[in-house]
């Protein structure tokens, strides 16, 4: 039987082990070294070195995951993935970074049980304007709405280079989606309009805790800024 026939009909693409583990093959090489051994060797090298790449390929390789491997964040958004935070800020001492989202690109917590929260949000449509947002916040704190005149008299603070309305509200806080309110809470915030977009920083938590962190709030707001785009 020809050595070529054997190679062509061996399973799984002619592995070298098939040839070298078969006693008939070894005997063949020993009997006819000069006549056929060399073409066979050349063929063997050619066959074992082939790895065909086509336009559609099945994924066949896997690797085992180590128990020591750091778990990646599932669902990270583009800025997080590329380390390209367009926002820069300093997290005040004692505060922690909480999980961020598209709605809360900066999300911080503070307090012994991290019960205080402070976050930045950007709304492309502005959320109805400054007054509507201030009144929405007041409603969350169980307070009555204010008028345009009252809004105009409210103190101002600069948020990322834009003058915004500073809000300080005390009351019973009902967070979005909650059915029960939390008494004796306080909210500090800045509502700024950037063209049609709305820019908000909101800090809320138990009254004593928020008051103890009001300087940290100012520090956070002062350091918050946009990173300049990368060079192209």
């Amino acid at each position: 039987m020809s050595i070529f026939w054997r190679l062509q009909n061996s399973p799984k693409g002619y592995p070298a082990s098939y040839v070298f583990s078969n006693p008939h093959m070894i005997a063949f090489f020993l009997r006819h070294p000069a006549r056929q051994a060399l073409p066979c060797l050349l063929l063997l090298f050619a066959l074992t070195s082939c790895d065909r790449v086509s336009s559609r390929m099945e994924i066949t390789r896997t690797r085992e995951i180590s128990q020591y491997e750091t778990k990646p964040k599932v669902g990270a958004y583009a800025q997080e993935r590329f380390g390209d935070e367009r926002l820069i800020w300093q997290t005040p001492e004692g505060w922690s970074q909480a999980e961020r989202s598209q709605m809360r690109p900066v999300n911080l917590t503070f307090g012994p049980s991290r019960e205080g929260e402070c976050y930045l949000s950007l709304l492309p449509g502005g959320g109805g304007g400054v007054l509507a947002n201030v009144n929405r916040w007041r409603k969350q704190m169980g307070q009555p709405e204010i008028t345009e005149e009252e809004l105009a008299k409210m103190p101002k603070k600069t948020l990322m280079g834009i003058e915004g309305t500073f809000v300080s509200i005390e009351g019973a806080y009902t967070s979005v989606g909650a059915t029960e309110s939390k008494p004796d809470h306080k909210m500090l915030g800045i509502v700024a309009a950037m063209g049609e977009a709305g820019l908000f920083v909101k800090m809320v938590g138990p009254k004593a805790l928020v008051e103890a962190n009001s300087q940290a709030f100012d520090q956070f707001v002062t350091t918050l800024r946009l990173r300049m785009p990368q060079g192209q």
Partner: peptide, 17 residues
């Protein structure tokens, strides 16, 4: 949030070109 014990792998020689 539980990950599989293995990952599928596409080797470099299949996409480097």
């Amino acid at each position: 949030g539980k990950g599989g014990s293995t990952a599928m792998v596409i080797p470099m020689k299949h996409f480097a070109d």
